[in-house]
Design a protein around this nucleic acid. Structure first.
Lengths: 339, 339
DNA sequence: ACGTATCACTTATACGTATAAACTTTGTAT
DNA sequence: ATACAAAGTTTATACGTATAAGTGATACGT
């Protein structure tokens, strides 16, 4: 009654049924290997061949509408730069979830949070939503559950009170670096906080973790706000008094560490003689520098499989306990020459 | 008759209609600002308030089913590592498309191609598909069009014969680097081809572009297969005869260039004295090295807006001419100290 | 011979939306 | 007064699927 006819349309289950000489229901049963329904092998085969011949692929939206939920694991990602570890982790996760019949979808959304954002995510009736912990509110989680989302999973540096969490422990990274510096005999510690505001989500916890570890050993840390460009960083370093200059610095990550090392060396400071430097993320490039860069390695690659399995279970069982840790990254120091 | 009742369900347009005291059709007309349909302002307002009160958000799948196509721009991405430029470009593109009412969805799929892959993408009835040129076949494109996909857009180093293309010109990158090296007086040229097979898609064109530019000037280039790890790279360099050693190398990208520079320096070769090195992608880190790394910058950031606008037009008009270039990246040399 | 299982299907229906078509008011020209 | 248009709304329907419920067969035990 409505649509303009537009040439050849994609095949539907009804088309397949007609070609195979069976009913549409039978096609559906065959395609989904419906348990508890008996279909003879000959019919099964005929349906399969007809589907193949027509290039049939079920209409995802129709299926979602009928079932009330899709097989999508929705991952709303705003403008946050995806780091080295996280990128690998999610690529792997996507591959594994696919094996369980789910589809990981990265959805470039606005940076809203709470119920408003949840409403937008809910449109897709995803099986699960995987999102930064600080974008969830109680009302938002409730809304998602009401929309049939089986499980909401948070991601953040600490277990969320609202949902099970993938803990990417940025506190531990800072702590690990500082403990290493102290063990190497450094006492005038500095911790880099990137001047770039979009990194604040990660930088806050790393700094706090460093601060806490230092406090536990009776050492103070100094906050160093550092821009990522060479000139800006040089200015910061030039402003240091010889007496007050730190003798050990955790540089937030390897990128900032490399810039920092460069400008310190150009300013005549010896690394690690005058100042020890520790980065994080263990980028391959860090090993090319002289001195080779000490870094905090964040492990997690392996665990993507565990997370995928667990997530699948949770979707099937519609588990929604909050405060549970589904995954926890571990931090360990990789000691090289810069510290 | 079918579904188990499961607590509070998300609000539907019918719920909104009931609360506002109108019919479901009216709600739909109001929510979509349907042109050619008159609704009084008072009713409009009542519907809007009811929708707000119930937290109504339309069921994306139901809408897709009814309309025959969704507002999704599907971007199937296999395991290819997303580079610096491409990452920024697509993030920006997503943001802009959203402004036009589309949703960019990155879909982590298998690495199939042709009609089989197309069938999988077609399940979602996307408005457009944005995919690597070499995954398209004529049959695949036909299948997508049949599924109501308004436009198929290819991405690759050359305009595709099957669909309009976003040209990320890797040939030009290689050419640009080699021309620079020749202009600097180098004649024994080498071009790095990464040993890692997943980079072959990009490496092939960069090498060919380099080869062609060299041939045009009567210079030969030598292919250097280089692994990305330091030890492996050192072995390659150690194998060079003093006489045959290249005096100018295009190193595929900045990452490989940095490794190469490192191992060459450690082997006692002077850069650029003995060997000039050119990278690509203009990573910030390259500027930190000594000598600072010369690189080929790939411009494109700006044009995301143009691409978004054009893509929107194409979706609306269902344009499908092949051989058209929607976007072309440009390569230019950034000369620093390594060459 | 008759009821009853089991098998192998088919029929009918609902999911939530968009939209053509029908319908009721109300206003306006003849 | 009557026709007729315009405004504002409702009714009815289709999109493609999954699945509960129904329908004929055929087999089997007594």
């Amino acid at each position: 009654m409505t649509d303009p006819p537009s040439g050849p349309r994609p095949a539907t289950s009804t088309d397949v049924a007609r070609l195979a000489g069976v009913s549409q229901a039978t096609v559906s049963y065959v395609m989904n290997d419906a348990p508890g329904v008996k279909i003879s092998d000959s019919t099964r085969e005929r349906v399969r061949q007809a589907a193949e011949q027509l290039g049939y692929s079920p209409h995802a939206s129709a299926r979602t509408l009928r079932k009330g939920r899709s097989d999508v694991v929705l991952m709303p990602v705003p403008d946050i730069p995806v780091g080295h570890l996280a990128g690998r982790f999610f690529r792997e996760l996507g591959r594994l979830l696919r094996g369980h019949g789910h589809t990981l979808v990265m959805y470039g959304d606005t940076d809203g949070r709470g119920a408003t954002a949840a409403r937008e995510w809910a449109q897709w009736r995803p099986a699960a939503v995987l999102v930064a912990a600080d974008r969830l509110t109680r009302a938002g989680v409730r809304q998602l559950h009401a929309a049939g989302v089986a499980t909401v999973v948070a991601m953040g540096p600490r277990p969320s009170l609202l949902a099970p969490t993938l803990v990417f422990d940025d506190y531990a990274i800072g702590g690990c670096a500082v403990e290493h510096l102290i063990a190497r005999g450094r006492r005038r510690l500095g911790v880099v906080v990137p001047a770039e505001p979009e990194l604040a989500v990660f930088a806050g916890p790393r700094f706090e973790g460093a601060e806490r570890a230092a406090a536990a050993r009776g050492v103070a840390v100094r906050r160093i706000v550092l821009p990522s460009d060479e000139a800006g960083a040089a200015e910061v370093v030039a402003g240091w008094d010889a007496g007050e200059r730190p003798d050990g610095i955790f540089a937030y990550n390897d990128d900032y560490a490399m810039v920092l090392m460069r400008v310190m060396q150009d300013a005549g400071l010896a690394v690690p003689g005058d100042v020890a430097v520790v980065g994080a993320d263990d980028l391959p490039l860090g090993r090319l520098l002289r001195p080779r860069l000490t870094s905090v390695r964040v492990a997690g690659d392996r665990s993507a499989a565990q997370v995928a399995d667990r997530l699948h279970q949770m979707i099937v069982a519609a588990e929604r306990e909050a405060g549970v840790v589904l995954f926890e990254s571990s931090a360990e120091i990789v000691h090289r020459e810069s510290s």
